[in-house]
Design a protein around this nucleic acid. Structure first.
Lengths: 240, 240
DNA sequence: GGCCCAAAATTGTGATCACATTTGCCGCCG
DNA sequence: CGGCGGCAAATGTGATCACAATTTTGGGCC
């Protein structure tokens, strides 16, 4: 077994033969880890819509693996609250309520500006240049209306900053939070489009270049507030 | 199978697991859920020390179940960062470093006072009385030197407040954070004893009775700072 | 006596089978 | 024609087997 279809090569480290060579694990990735990453990407950027259900056998057949690694991956995503195990023991992408949304917004504002502030003194000129390049990629994707590209780049923009803080515990916390609102970002941008987005990344970049910690905090906070406000308006107008 | 110490039940979804000691959960518990809760308790209050390794088959034999539910439970705890999967694919309780500890402290201060503040308007007199009773149980356990009893009661004190906020997403986030520093609290109190603890619960109770939101925020914040400072001193004097 | 390599034991991972529960569908009866 | 009951398919859960990788152990060599 262990097929996992064509594109898997991109996410895998390298020399992964698609065949049943069974010594695939030399690269260090277990099957359930691969399944996990793929599902995680699907949830974060891609297709799976909130409210839609997934089945273990369905995913297993789709990915060409047995149900076992899928079970472990799904169990992990449930623990991270990226998936929801209902009472019927069916698994679905959690629907977003206004309450949940507001709590995520609060948690993001409580944690992410701090992460940026911690990262700032460790940022080299090279790092900042890379972040700037990512921001330009964001603009490009925005103008092109490439929703998934925008979301990937935006995720990269934020986490390439946060990761520099080397505060891995907090970063993991924030990653888990992003996993929870990812699907709704997708819904919002899919519904309204990316052309109307207006982020505060310029201010953040300027603050990074000037070593202005408070400015960076404010920029990140404003960016979160603006983006989440946008998503909230687009998705939760009368739901939840 | 499905022994789990004590009650041997039917082969599947034991209809009446009469144990359930901590929480009065209804039934319909799957085996891996039971294993999860038991392990979680072990990690939060009980025996498993940071740095010690666990094995799937070992746990399975110990609990009298097959390795399958143990796998799922362990996978879930790994996702919650209560356990750590090393590169060797061995599983252990994560060791605490000063960095991780400091980040947990920050996250707690960022989230828990807010949770208490949100809970305050929803607290009835009855709720406050129950919380007060829990605080007395804390004092009793402290004076008796009952470390585990103290930790259970302290956990209950905090989360019986937080849960009243009905901000389930934030509560889950904080639960996950507690899971991560639980073992160290245990180490600290086990090393130094519970007699020297001095919490800020009285102030919190007074603030709750007076409907004083800011006072409650401060009390919780102070309680976190004091308790975590104590643990940090006790455990991380020169480690990490 | 210490070190190194091979064999055995341990352990994590994945596949497959068995079974209870749930879901969905179709026909039956009112 | 519509609600209801039962039967078949689908699904989650748990157990067992197989296998590769790692760890441990034991014995022989220097």
């Amino acid at each position: 077994m262990k097929r996992l279809a064509g594109v898997s090569a991109s996410t895998k480290t390298s020399q992964a033969s698609e065949e049943t060579r069974d010594s695939d694990r030399i690269v260090g990735l277990t099957t359930h880890e691969e399944v996990y990453r793929r599902l995680r990407e699907q949830i974060l950027y891609g297709g799976i819509k909130p409210g839609s259900a997934v089945t273990l056998r369905g995913l297993a057949d789709e990915l060409g693996v047995s149900s076992m690694p899928v079970r472990e991956a799904v169990r992990r995503l449930i623990a991270e609250r990226a998936l929801l195990l209902q009472d019927n023991r069916r698994v679905m992408v959690p629907p977003m309520t206004r309450d949940t949304f507001e709590q995520i917004l609060f948690a993001r504002r409580a944690l992410e500006p701090e992460l940026a502030a911690r990262a700032l003194p460790k940022l080299t000129k090279k790092d900042i240049a890379a972040i700037e390049a990512t921001d330009m990629a964001i603009d490009r994707a925005m103008r092109a209306g490439d929703t998934e590209g925008y979301m990937r780049a935006n995720h990269q923009f934020h986490f390439s900053i946060y990761r520099k803080s080397e505060a891995w515990t907090l970063v993991a916390l924030v990653e888990s939070i992003w996993l929870q609102f990812g699907p709704f970002m997708r819904m919002a941008y899919g519904r309204i489009g990316t052309s109307t987005i207006e982020d505060h990344h310029e201010f953040a970049l300027a603050a990074m270049q000037n070593g202005d910690v408070q400015g960076l905090r404010s920029a990140i906070d404003a960016d979160i507030g603006q983006g989440m406000g946008f998503i909230g308006e687009a998705v939760l107008t009368r739901a939840g």
